[in-house]
Nucleic acid binder design. Structure first.
Lengths: 199, 199, 199, 199
DNA sequence: TATGAATGAGCCTTCATTCAT
DNA sequence: CATGAATGAAGGCTCATTCAT
């Protein structure tokens, strides 16, 4: 729980912490957050029960950490990407590709994220996660609007378009299998085609 | 838990049970299934703690009943609809309209359904619910394929198209508000336009 | 719970009550008093849950009634018997015969009685049952002492002799089977032979 | 519940477990097994409610452990004893002495054992206890038969003799007081005299 | 740093009992 | 008289968390 101060041990601590987060996401995704007891979790993580509390002050903090590990790299990439001066449709394509790649790389995190949406939406300690999500959605909305404008408008309501895209991409976590027919990039491109109606 | 045998009392029992299911869906959607204790639930349902067990043999059975109340009317309507001899694109449009209407009418049920997907996918008592869902998805897949064929094919992978449609429609439960700009039918039509890329 | 006043209905009420007691003894003997719920009991008795409360003010009263149904006829017979002017050894033999007959006829009652001894010994409402038992034991003790005196004493401690006899006879409820090799009277005679060491 | 693996801690765990069993027997004997709630029990045992579950997987397992703690040493002693080449009547006397000593040393265990006979006889998890009891009874039966044969037979049915002995000895738990007139050995000898009718 | 026994609050469920029908 | 739905207290048990080792 107390991050060490010497750089070497701190790096080791961070690495161990990150690993615990990833494994926990896996366990929570299958068994559910609430339905996984801390002893069960500890067993799956190959630490003693109390060991978890070296990295997290409580079970809910671990859940928050899972969401952070999901959102942070995505948000960083996305913000970097929209800062380029590429055409909007190219930005959109790149954004959706990275987004899908993130979903696919953090499939368990996504499933947990969706399961615990009620906590994210209403929980007291979840403001930060809530805002990350909003920030990301606004960013997508913006790129989408610009891409649409470039293409000469659309008969479909822009907000519906955004919701549809969010729905498609997030839903990917529920069916994607690593050895599937389509690569993450192909999936992303398919989504862009649909949402822009091929224009 | 024991459905009465006399028709009159049985009707009353069924009505009360259905009402309890609906209210429970509402509470679970906000607070989460596991994070809602049975006493809390009972209070929201305006029955005594033990009263719940007159209608359900346990908390999990209540959750199953919520999913049944969501799936059954949808599946019945959908099966009736695809049995008509209307053109596939018309069938698709009708199907998505009814589907969206069902999501909108059972918004809380849908949110609960999504939260507890890990139970639905892995739980021992969930086989029936699992099969209803699969049946519905196959039905959508079929209509979609026929509609596509009528329109002369598409550059987008058919399975991706299906997944995208499932993602969009299900995601609707997360943002729909009764007084929003778009009616359920308009939302549905928008989805069909996107998934068929306007053809 | 309220015994009727008209003689005819009262007789019917008494008969029904007695039958309920006997059946309850049977159920309690197999499943245990505490481990038999009132709904379970009601089902075995073929009445509705609430029906039991027409004859007994509560579950524990029913248990007391079982003990009364066991003790009352035994005590009545025993008191009548020791009032005769037969020789003590004959009285002893008759007493043990009736006692064993009572155990055999109320086998379930006896098993329940033994299971719930801690209640009988310590329970607040059990004074009457406690005293019946004591009265009976003193009666046996008295006959036994007189029989012993007639026989010219014994090398075995008289109280031990009493305890042994109580132990043997009560234990009979645990192994007696109606179609066994020995009749209740033969069993009783065997006990008397042992306790008097054949004198 | 999970016995430790290191010898030192295992010894401590075993000792604590044994102590808990003994104390639980005491509480159950007075208040009854079912009528003692786990919080009540925990208080008497001076552990927290949940602490009990470190040593037993459930309340019923604790009850089984009480019966094991009663039967195991008795059975071990008895088997050792009958393996000697002493005359049968001497073996019988020694056996009953040890048996009575065991009853007296485990008086509470015996009372619990008798209260919960319906569980022992019918319970699913009780097979082992059931078989221990049967094994002991057969052992007594055997010694008794041989002792009888040495003495030249008896007019009393051998099985009745066995039942009577079982009844006497077990019943001892219900009246024995440590400061009583008779020592356990004297009690045992009295029982042997009665059952052999002084021969 | 890591452990896992111990805690006691809280969980789901069942209970004996009541009372409108 | 009889019913069985409803009550809410209490049941056994599991939980997230702590802390002596």
């Amino acid at each position: 729980m107390a991050r060490p101060e010497t750089p070497t041990t701190r790096a080791r601590w961070d690495a161990r912490r990150a690993e615990v987060i990833g494994r926990a996401a896996h366990v929570f995704a299958r068994r559910g957050y609430d339905q996984t007891s801390v002893p069960e979790l500890a067993e799956a993580l190959e630490v003693a029960t109390g060991g978890i509390y070296h990295y997290f002050s409580g079970k809910e903090q671990l859940l928050i950490a899972i969401c952070d590990q999901l959102m942070e790299p995505l948000l960083a990439e996305a913000e970097e990407l929209v800062a380029t001066d590429a055409p909007a449709r190219e930005q959109l394509r790149d954004l959706v590709r990275r987004w899908v790649a993130n979903v696919v790389d953090h499939q368990d995190h996504m499933l947990v994220f969706q399961q615990e949406r009620h906590l994210i939406d209403h929980g007291a300690q979840w403001r930060e996660v809530r805002e990350s999500r909003k920030r990301f959605e606004r960013l997508v909305q913006d790129v989408l609007a610009r891409a649409q404008a470039e293409g000469g408008g659309t008969p479909v309501d822009p907000r519906l378009q955004l919701s549809a895209l969010l729905g498609m991409v997030n839903h990917t976590a529920q069916w994607y299998r690593p050895r599937g027919r389509l690569s993450p990039a192909e999936i992303a491109d398919g989504y862009v085609d649909l949402v822009l109606m091929g224009r």
